[in-house]
């Protein structure tokens, strides 16, 4: 699979990262390198091996259903750029 600079622009947009043409070209070169690496790995025969979703073969530990957090709104909002009536304010979004 090969990428072009349109793909880079699209991925950047999905990630909300602004890239100019030069940066897109540089990123394209790096990502193409990574894709080549993936292609090399895909040549390995993995038949009969279940995919792992984690690098360690361990399973999820569960937490008891208890409320352990207290209200620390004031502390958390002290670093927010803008708050009002307990709400974090962000530039308007309407779908």
């Amino acid at each position: 699979m090969s990428l072009n600079s349109q793909d880079i622009k699209r991925i950047a947009h999905l990630a909300r990262i602004e890239v100019n043409d030069d940066e897109a070209q540089a990123t394209l070169n790096k990502l193409t390198g990574i894709m080549a690496l993936i292609e090399e790995m895909q040549a390995v025969n993995t038949e009969g091996i279940a995919p792992m979703s984690h690098s360690q073969d361990v399973t999820q530990r569960l937490r008891e259903d208890q409320v352990t957090e207290t209200n620390q709104r004031e502390l958390y909002q002290s670093i927010a750029p803008s708050v009002e009536d307990g709400l974090y304010l962000v530039p308007k979004v309407i779908e």
Binding site: Q66, V67, T68, E69, R73, Y76, G86, L87
Partner: peptide, 19 residues
């Protein structure tokens, strides 16, 4: 009682961001 990945309360109707 608590959220799926943390110990914050899920009670409905609390003041904004207190949970």
């Amino acid at each position: 009682q608590s959220k799926i990945f943390s110990g914050a309360s899920t009670a409905f109707g609390a003041e904004p961001n207190t949970q």
